[in-house]
Simulated assay, not measured.
Amino acid sequence: MKIVVWILAGIGALVVLGGVVLPLVHWLLGSLLWVVPAALVVGGGIWLARRGRREGLDASGRPQQVR
């Protein structure tokens, strides 16, 4: 009787793995395809803004004029 319970538990574990965990992992990996490029764009914009401010450039990339 114990072997039947273990076999049924194994089958149940495979069903849970296939029905819940694999779609969740698939969704997370799919969302990374959107999150990583967005983070790179935002981070690049921040980096460019700081670099421009440090070099004395305005938002259009021209040197700031002292009045």
Score class of each variant (00 low, 15 high):
12 G>P: 03
26 H>V: 15
29 L>H: 05
21 V>P: 00
63 P>I: 04
61 G>E: 01
51 R>S: 00
52 G>L: 07
51 R>Y: 03
28 L>M: 15
24 L>E: 14
38 A>C: 08
22 L>Y: 00
51 R>D: 09
38 A>I: 11
4 V>P: 10
38 A>N: 05
24 L>S: 15
67 R>Y: 11
43 G>Y: 00
3 I>H: 14
46 I>T: 05
40 L>Q: 09
49 A>C: 03
50 R>F: 12
66 V>D: 08
58 D>F: 05
60 S>V: 06
6 W>E: 12
12 G>K: 06
46 I>K: 10
23 P>R: 04
22 L>V: 12
30 G>Q: 02
61 G>Q: 04
14 L>N: 10
29 L>Y: 02
3 I>E: 14
23 P>D: 10
20 V>S: 06
34 W>E: 11
49 A>L: 10
57 L>W: 04
32 L>N: 12
3 I>A: 14
1 M>I: 11
42 V>P: 03
45 G>C: 03
34 W>L: 15
23 P>A: 05
29 L>C: 03
7 I>W: 08
27 W>C: 13
64 Q>C: 13
12 G>C: 03
49 A>N: 06
49 A>K: 00
63 P>H: 01
11 I>P: 06
30 G>I: 02
53 R>I: 06
20 V>W: 09
41 V>G: 05
58 D>M: 04
59 A>E: 10
42 V>W: 01
61 G>W: 08
13 A>N: 03
10 G>S: 05
19 G>W: 06
56 G>C: 04
58 D>R: 00
60 S>I: 04
6 W>M: 12
48 L>E: 14
43 G>R: 02
41 V>L: 09
58 D>T: 09
8 L>V: 14
3 I>Y: 14
53 R>S: 03
1 M>N: 12
6 W>Y: 10
29 L>T: 13
20 V>L: 02
55 E>F: 00
61 G>N: 09
11 I>N: 10
48 L>W: 11
53 R>K: 07
2 K>S: 14
65 Q>C: 12
14 L>P: 04
26 H>D: 15
51 R>P: 06
56 G>Y: 05
17 L>D: 08
12 G>D: 07
57 L>I: 02
40 L>H: 14
65 Q>I: 09
54 R>K: 06
26 H>N: 15
6 W>G: 11
43 G>H: 01
18 G>K: 03
19 G>K: 05
35 V>Q: 03
25 V>D: 03
50 R>Q: 14
30 G>E: 11
